[in-house]
Design a binder for these strands. Structure first.
Lengths: 194, 194
DNA sequence: GACAAAAACGACCGGTCGTACTATTTTAGC
DNA sequence: GCTAAAATAGTACGACCGGTCGTTTTTGTC
């Protein structure tokens, strides 16, 4: 059975994930988080060993949500180019659908030069995602949708770049054409991969 | 004449820019910065009106350095495709050459959802750079190096994406092939633009 | 409904934050 | 070398930081 404590912890982590996407994993304070969730600071903190533990759990929560909302649904979609396209569209929706944007992107540029377990966990999650992208491209090659000499890892790199630029244009530059630009870039990537 | 105070302020800002690229503009503390520069907290703080003023000056300093080290030298290079290529290579060097990576990228993802003068200044600087990139591409079109129906702003978007992915692969994923991937992506971009 | 366990709370710790004010030292022009 | 100004240091502040502790409230089980 699901205890009350687990429910509360989930609620906290959901809120924390959103908050961290705005103020960062380091900028997130226990006090603010307690206020946001309507709990006392100590009551909230009792759910976590330390702030670092909280940060690790935020990353794990984001990973679960990402798999559930972005990755998993595409496994039920058509293999090959269709799946790669589905991954891209769902990835964009994932960014649009949450305040502060993609928590992985936000955290990545925050922690890239701050060694420690949190950075390690984040890098592992990002590496996993890059691998999953490359794998989907491999399948598209096997299916004959993409040309045989295409480098799946280079495709993943390019795809990630398009997403990161979308994030920047959308969030910082408030560019209304950001999504169009992203799709145009992705279409070019796909069409030069056939 | 250059007063002692101005010299000191420059020294502080240089150090602050590097530090902010690691811990962020918000995470940067006056106390740490004072320790790093060997000054007292109050002595250092006397150079700035507030922390926000310090942050604004850090961005302005970064902007000056970027123009000096990345942009300006390419104006003396050949117009057209050669200049666009030079911009890209210098941009990569700019990232590699400083601890913490490109301060603009770090700050962009930190501040994208935190309204205020600092975010505005950053967005303005980024917009300026995107415009400069697009302008260089326009010249390359005029010179006949790139095809006439190429969208310079789309080119700038794609180019920025390649850079952002490079930043991520290099800094977070510690990918040794990051530079190769970036150049491969850029070559593909250039060759499909002719 | 008693009762132990789980969960949440309020008060508090030492430390650091940004910032204000005053005092001291260093600089630059005469 | 004197002197006013500029630069730096010292001290203090209220607020908040992550974190601890003992107490109270809520929960689930018999």
């Amino acid at each position: 059975m699901v205890t009350k404590g687990e429910e509360t912890r989930e609620r906290i982590l959901d809120r924390a994930m959103a908050l961290a996407a705005v103020v960062g994993l380091e900028g997130l304070s226990i006090g603010d988080l307690a206020r946001e969730t309507g709990m006392s600071k100590s009551g909230l903190f009792a759910h976590f060993e330390s702030k670092e533990d909280l940060q690790l759990r935020i990353i794990e929560t984001a990973r679960e949500r990402f798999i559930r909302d972005v990755f998993a649904p595409t496994l039920r979609a058509s293999r090959g180019e269709g799946r790669v396209r589905a991954l891209f569209e769902r990835w964009l929706s994932w960014e649009r659908g949450r305040v502060g944007g993609c928590p992985f992107v936000e955290a990545s540029y925050e922690l890239d030069d701050r060694p420690g377990p949190v950075r390690d966990a984040l890098a592992a999650a990002q590496g996993e995602w890059v691998n999953a992208l490359a794998k989907a491209v491999e399948i598209a090659i096997d299916e004959g949708h993409f040309r045989g000499d295409l480098d799946p890892r280079q495709f993943a790199y390019d795809m990630y770049g398009i997403f990161l630029a979308y994030h920047l244009y959308h969030r910082l530059l408030d560019d209304e054409e950001a999504a169009d630009r992203a799709r145009a870039a992705f279409d070019r990537l796909v069409s030069t991969s056939r």
